[in-house]
Design a protein around this nucleic acid. Structure first.
Length: 887
RNA sequence: GCCCGGAUGGCGGAAUUGGUAGACGCGCUGGUCUCAAACACCAGUGGCAGCAAUGCUGUGCCGGUUCGAUCCCGGCUCCGGGUACCA
């Protein structure tokens, strides 16, 4: 019988849909549950990319396997459908984004269904549905009404916030101001990156290194706008600690840790000569204060103007102006020489009362620490470089632990920078009474920090890189904020029972040049009056795309609930997510934001777990072959021809080099999954994407590889669908052993997500069965079951041909029997000095002495010994024999 | 620069994490079937030498530990990803 995949796949997809085979179980009494989640896609107009099915197939195999293992499985799919492309399309064509979105979702849904993925489509969600974003708005209100209790390290309702007496007295406004300063969501005038191309504000996190916008590539500039911000740094410690308990790839955990960027140190106050002001710096090395020979402040530092003396105003202002034109890249490019100017002013080093000059330089940023640093050129590379350039003093205060006397001399003389540990020198002062000479780094830091605190000159401090999250966009196609700005200056959030706040219909989707969102065009929607006649204006910003994806895994649990965000019992049953698979591009932003929201919801008693995603796995990117000429010029795929394994330009005939690159329209090397399914079928596509290599590595797509797995599926179908090959009675021992080895291997590989080797094991078994020519009905059924998670259409077809009426989706996963895997003989590799020379088959139960006796008696051993006596003989039972001889 | 990965046949990759390097698949070579081709099937396939048995060599490079290293340690080179002077 021919492998008619088209007919088979269509039929089973229909069967699954009609029978609701993959409906999520309602019975929550089964203690075995598994929540398997994909990072849901943005439904772009281009349709599915071959990168999507990679992760989706992985989770599908896992889900199908878990169902067969008796688990209640929740495996949903939905759409992260707010986003820029639909809005830009609307600006160009006037088509409402909801129409574009709906069409794109339909395409995605069709394509995904054609892959035979076992989603429960009753759980489908779309972030742009009012029934969904009503709850996104609801969470925003929660964030707004929550403050972070530093002592308890916990978010609490603002109703529980005690306003200090000193503030409570002056009046309502002051109290409101105090409460606002504590809320997790706040409204503030922020100097933000503005993208003139998208007419949108970008978060720091969205601006690329070269100063361009992540989404469109346009160059961004700075602009002042009223923005909603979320105080994520308050949760920095919780977010950091939580990482330890997660089953995530270590690399991703490190990325999150680095992003949060905790560092311990101290804030130190420096008196400014001639001014009644302190200059506060954050330093991780307060112990090096004796080596601080100058200070540097950022150009944007609030005290810059005050500090600069009249004589230096001109040069400093010129410098600040030049800096403001620079992008972050220009300011931070290591290759470029450091720049800076003297302010004319001195600060007093608290440890020795010495005056040290204050400079302005753009290598110090306002966004981190206090925007000012103390410079220790002898022990910090950047400060050293700066000091050399501007001829500033360099005082070595640590005796370097180096053996080279010349290098030691250079370091002590301040001619070379030393950043390692060493005993302090030149670190005492009679006037302040401090002396740390002879101590090492750890004790030195403790000593100085303690001294600073006693003298009231500084405090131990923990600092984080993580910044407040800029949470609003000047867009139409996003969740509106449930916020009203009143004419008297009050800002209020709407009542929960007034939600959802829908988007108004618009004629024009173009944002204003001033930076206000297109929502400001809708006067009817915009203006409101309260019951006392007070007039107000709705917030015109909308939420960023992150909002919808921050909590979607929770809505999947109970997507149609219109009374509650979700049913609590259901949440308690299904959470946390047991397996979460998606691209590594979300390693930091989405996963960190999502964890933040989840922790807030946990603190408020809305969810039952502290972390949302127990196990995370990042799939590698799928790349494609690309071609370039000798000089490195890229050649589109349609202009390349292959001859004898080499590649040539169709028009010029020039020889081309094959490279691996990201799929792109310009290189014409984008692979469309529809083309693959129509040619080889969905099972082949699924199998190939899993067989290409380990799930987490980037790997190039190769059409020839699909042919390989297609061949395997065809052979499997032809063999098992042929009644002549399927017999009744006792199974051959070799087949039985192979079968049980395969069950064990596939099971272990699914649990560890190593699908490539699982597939290889099934291929090996099929090769064995084909060679043997016949297998029993039971063997055929078992093999069909283990193949099912990988190639479900084919497996269902074979299952039916074997005489079963119902789907095999819930058939129990076969158990392997270790008894069948036991070997009587082991073929020992015999090595001489570690080099394998020959093999000898011996019973597994032999003792070491018996093995040595037999091996030495072998004539081949005599040959390799050449008359010598072995110095040592190593026998590892059922592994290896190694004979050591003197050479 | 720093951080995190990685480097194994012509190609994608495998190796029970210290014990036979190259599983499985692609490609290639030869054969069967066919008028022929495709498909399918069978056999071979790291490199070098040899008719062969076999030998030498071989996991980016240099060194170390070990009876034994793709795996552990030290030092490099190159590639990929992240990040941008983080005090």
């Amino acid at each position: 019988m021919d492998y008619n995949f088209q007919e088979i796949e269509k039929r089973w997809q229909k069967y699954w849909e009609e029978n609701k085979t993959f409906k999520t179980p309602e019975d929550l009494s089964n203690p075995k549950k598994c929540y398997v989640l994909d990072m849901f896609p943005y439904p772009s107009g281009a349709g599915l990319h071959v990168g999507h099915p990679e992760g989706y197939t992985a989770t599908d195999i896992f889900s199908r396997y878990k169902r067969m293992k008796g688990f209640n499985v929740l495996h949903p799919m939905g759409w992260d459908a707010f986003g820029l492309p639909a809005e830009q399309y609307a600006i160009q064509t006037g088509t409402h984004p909801s129409i574009t979105t709906k069409n794109n979702c339909n395409t995605f849904r069709r394509q995904i269904k054609e892959l035979g993925l076992s989603y429960d489509w009753d759980k489908e969600i779309n972030t742009t549905d009012t029934g969904y974003f009503k709850w996104t708005q609801w969470i925003f209100i929660r964030l707004y009404n929550t403050w972070f209790d530093d002592e308890l390290q916990k978010g609490r309702p603002v109703s529980e916030l005690k306003v200090p007496e000193t503030i409570a007295k002056p009046g309502k406004k002051e109290i409101a101001k105090y409460v606002d300063s504590k809320r997790l969501a706040y409204y503030a005038n922020a100097r933000v990156w503005w993208c003139p191309g998208c007419r949108i504000v970008c978060a720091n996190e969205e601006v690329l290194n070269d100063g361009s916008h992540e989404k469109c590539g346009n160059r961004v500039e700075k602009k002042n706008l009223k923005q909603w911000m979320l105080r994520i740094p308050l949760y920095a410690e919780r977010l950091l600690k939580g990482i330890d308990s997660l089953e995530w790839p270590e690399g991703i955990k490190d990325m999150q840790r680095n992003w949060i960027g905790r560092s311990t140190g101290a804030e130190v106050d420096f008196k400014i000569e001639g001014l009644n002001e302190n200059l506060t710096v954050f330093t991780t090395r307060p112990d090096t204060l004796f080596g601080a020979t100058y200070m540097v402040i950022a150009p944007e530092h609030p005290l810059t103007d005050v500090i600069t003396t009249i004589d230096y105003k001109c040069t400093v202002n010129t410098y600040i102006n030049a800096t403001s034109l620079k992008s972050d890249l220009d300011r931070t490019d290591l290759a470029k020489e450091k720049t800076g100017v003297f302010t004319g002013r001195y600060a007093i080093n608290p440890v020795n009362k010495k005056p040290i000059p204050i400079w302005v330089a753009d290598y110090v940023l306002t966004g981190y620490g206090t925007g000012a640093i103390m410079a220790v050129p002898a022990h910090d590379n950047r400060d050293f470089e700066f000091a050399l350039k501007f001829n500033l003093p360099i005082v070595c205060i640590q005796d370097p632990d180096v053996s080279d006397p010349e290098q030691k001399k250079r370091i002590l003389a301040g001619k070379e920078c030393w950043t390692e540990d060493g005993k302090y020198i030149n670190s005492s002062d009679k006037s302040t009474g401090i002396d740390i000479n002879g101590l090492n780094k750890d004790t030195g830091i403790a000593h100085i920090t303690n001294w600073l605190e006693i003298k009231n000159l500084g405090t131990a401090k923990v600092n984080y890189k993580l910044r407040d999250w800029l949470f609003s966009r000047q867009r139409y196609w996003g969740e509106p904020f449930p916020v009203i700005h009143w004419e008297d200056g009050e800002v209020t959030v709407m009542n929960e029972n007034e939600l959802p706040l829908k988007l108004p219909e618009l004629e024009k989707y173009l944002p204003g040049d001033s930076g206000e969102s297109p929502l400001s065009n809708s006067t009817e929607w915009l203006n409101v009056t309260d019951k006392n006649g007070r007039r107000g204006r709705r917030e015109t910003n909308t939420m960023p795309q992150w909002a919808g994806s921050c909590w979607y895994y929770l809505r999947f649990i109970d997507p149609k609930n219109d009374k509650l965000i979700f049913d609590q019992a259901k949440e308690k049953y299904w959470m946390p997510v047991d397996l979460y698979i998606g691209g590594a591009e979300h390693a930091v932003l989405h996963l960190l934001y999502s964890r933040f929201w989840h922790k807030v919801l946990f603190d408020l008693g809305i969810v039952s777990t502290d972390e949302p995603y127990k196990k995370l796995f990042n799939q590698g990117m799928i790349l494609a072959f690309a071609y370039e000429t000798e000089s490195g010029a890229k050649v589109p795929g349609d202009l390349v021809e292959e001859r004898d394994g080499k590649y040539f330009h169709k028009e010029t005939g020039a020889m081309l080099n094959q490279k691996v690159a990201k799929m792109s329209k310009s290189l014409k090397n984008v692979v469309n999954p529809d083309d693959v399914t129509s040619k080889y079928g969905a099972d082949s596509l699924r199998l190939y994407e899993m067989f290409m290599g380990p799930l987490d590595v980037t790997k190039p797509w190769d059409d020839k590889g699909v042919k390989g797995v297609f061949g395997f599926l065809g052979r499997a179908f032809r063999f098992f669908s042929n009644p002549e090959n399927i017999i009744k009675g006792e199974e051959d021992t070799e087949v039985l052993k192979g079968l049980h080895y395969t069950i064990k291997k596939v099971e272990g590989d699914i649990e560890t997500l190593r699908f490539n080797t699982a597939i290889s094991a099934m291929m090996i078994f099929l090769n064995l069965a084909t060679k043997k020519g016949k297998v029993t009905t039971e063997t055929a059924a078992t093999f069909t079951k283990i193949l099912a998670p990988f190639a479900p259409h084919l497996a269902e077809e074979l299952w039916q041909l074997l005489g079963h009426k119902k789907s095999l989706a819930y058939e129990p996963w076969p158990e392997f029997n270790e008894e069948f895997l036991k070997e009587d003989l082991f073929e020992y590799p015999v090595s001489f000095n570690g080099k394998m020379r020959f093999k000898i088959e011996l019973p597994v139960y032999l003792s070491k002495d018996e093995i040595i006796k037999i091996v030495l008696a072998d004539e081949r051993s005599q040959k390799w010994l050449g008359g010598a006596t072995p110095v040592n003989i190593i026998v590892v039972p059922n592994r290896i024999v190694n004979i050591v001889i003197k050479t």
